[in-house]
């Protein structure tokens, strides 16, 4: 990648270094800014990180899975987005792969992830 692209990407990703390091298998709580008319509020989205895509670039995203009233929900966040207020890591998971697509069909006991100590 060209130095100049990296320069612009670093400027875009300034906030990313403030977030704690996390990877797939971790349980995170993402605080998202939501604008409704003139009002702004914070919404939280808590779940397991399934994957991080395009790391190191301005277009990096991460996918969070949570079970919302019995239904599995995936949400993809652009990590450099100014709409992300903060990211909290609640639990470090011990997983053996970078992309946890196998979780998609599982629920309950089968969908557990061991904690990394």
């Amino acid at each position: 990648m060209s130095d100049l692209i990296q320069l612009i990407d670093t400027n875009t990703r300034t906030k990313v270094s403030e977030y704690p390091a996390f990877k797939s298998g971790d349980t995170v709580n993402v605080h998202v800014r939501i604008r409704e008319g003139n009002k702004e509020r914070i919404q939280q989205f808590q779940g397991v990180v399934l994957q991080r895509k395009n790391p190191g670039t301005a277009g990096e995203t991460f996918t969070v899975r949570k079970i919302s009233s019995g239904i599995g929900v995936h949400r993809i966040f652009p990590i450099a987005s100014p709409n992300i207020d903060k990211i909290e890591v609640l639990r470090r998971g011990k997983v053996r792969r970078a992309r946890l697509n196998y979780l998609k069909g599982l629920q309950g006991k089968a969908a557990r992830i061991k904690e990394k100590l």
Binding site: I8, T12, A58, S81
Partner: peptide, 17 residues
């Protein structure tokens, strides 16, 4: 080359350098 940046409304814009 191309990359993307965010505008003041938090929208992601594709851009060319």
């Amino acid at each position: 080359g191309m990359t993307s940046i965010y505008d003041e409304n938090g929208r992601n814009i594709a851009c060319t350098l």
